[in-house]
Computed example of a mutant assay.
Amino acid sequence: MRILIVHNILWAHYKSSVFQALQRLIDLRPDSTLMVLQIARNERSRAGLEANQADAPTYTYPYELLFDRYLEEVGLQERSSALLNRARAFRPDVLLLTGYYDPAQLLLLLWAKATGVRVVMQNESTAADHQRGGWKEQLKRWILSRCDGFFCFGSQSATYLIQLGIAPHKILLRKNSVDNTALRTAYLQARQHRSAQQHSLGIRTRNFVFVGRLIAVKNLKALLNAFADAQAQAEHAADWGLILLGDGPEKSALLEQAATRGSSDAVHFLPGRPWYQVPDVLAISDVLVLPSLSEPWGLVVNEAMACGLPVIVSNRCGCAPDLVRHGENGFVFDPDQPDELTRHLLSFMNGTVDADQLGQSALAHIAPYAPEAVAQDMLDGFIKLTT
């Protein structure tokens, strides 16, 4: 079995850990071969998050980087030509495409159907992450009907495909993962210096943390308001702070809002950093908060849970029904009901929930969402389609 995977950017470390795990499984099958075509090195919006240190984790799996530049700089014609030429040369039995939004990959889909190659389409979209309807949905239905199987980012992503007419048996994967082991190892190492780091940065002894871009869809203004409201009510407000880790166009407005609400001394902004350094900040934090208005999945929830942190997650995040067990490893809230978020923040600040127990439950629940488990499901799916 010859497996060809088309992927957008080499930077996507969470996929690299899965591809490496998949290659290890392929190594046990002398009749199988894997190749990953990475279209570009990175996207412009993620340029500052690239690994640039010697201690960054590396992954080994067979791949070819088609264009050593940003994805936005790769034209449709050259992308289409490169993908088609490499696919013809590799002669796959099964082809995994990144998504249905790239015309170059749709051309590859048509080539595969004409030559008898089985096609798996990856889907991370959900019905809730954008307004749906019109001719685009009809075109999407037509494209998806040409595919033989699907790898989905969780149950909400799978449900969306079923709503578009896909038979449930064609959905071969319903998980998403990060490198749990690398993240946990880095977290435990950084945790040894927690108090010293907190003192050095001038932050509180207990902290909520947000990790991501500072953009409107992340709903950070609501988070700042909820935190300020919780401070006004909490018995131990002086012990708790809020860390916003990331960069983006909303930063100035958020700084001003924190000052207006009187939270400046408790809210700390830290610049974005490569993924393998995020555990350094999780180690000085206690609870992850992801308040997004729209989020296809939310990999930062995987990252936090792999480090043993409880989570507070908006129900608009695709990962919420799969990863968060309300009251067991964290809490899910409705972003249209901001008082819910305030109440959950208060439950930690007042100690009415056992944060340590929630964190241990988070660590246990994330174990099946590891690269090895996702890779096994992928391989099982490929085998199902080609035998």
Rank of each mutant, 00 (worst) to 15 (best):
R325T: 13
A355C: 12
N329V: 09
F331C: 06
L345H: 03
G262W: 09
E256L: 11
A362M: 11
G262N: 10
L282P: 08
A306K: 01
P310T: 02
V301K: 02
V300A: 00
Y276S: 12
A258C: 10
Q357N: 11
K251Y: 06
L341N: 09
L341Y: 04
A355Y: 09
A253I: 00
V301T: 03
Q360E: 13
A283G: 12
L293T: 09
D339A: 14
A355T: 10
G298D: 01
P291C: 07
A304E: 05
F331E: 01
L288Y: 05
L363E: 11
P310M: 08
F331Q: 03
A304D: 08
R261T: 15
S361H: 13
A259Y: 14
D280E: 15
C307Q: 03
L299P: 06
E340R: 08
P338M: 03
F333G: 05
Q357E: 13
P335N: 11
S294V: 03
Q257P: 04
F333C: 08
G308W: 01
V281S: 11
N315C: 12
G330Q: 05
V311Y: 04
A320V: 01
V313F: 04
L309T: 01
P310I: 03
C307F: 01
P271D: 15
M349W: 07
C307H: 00
V353K: 05
L270Y: 07
D280S: 14
C317Y: 05
E303D: 14
G308A: 07
P321I: 01
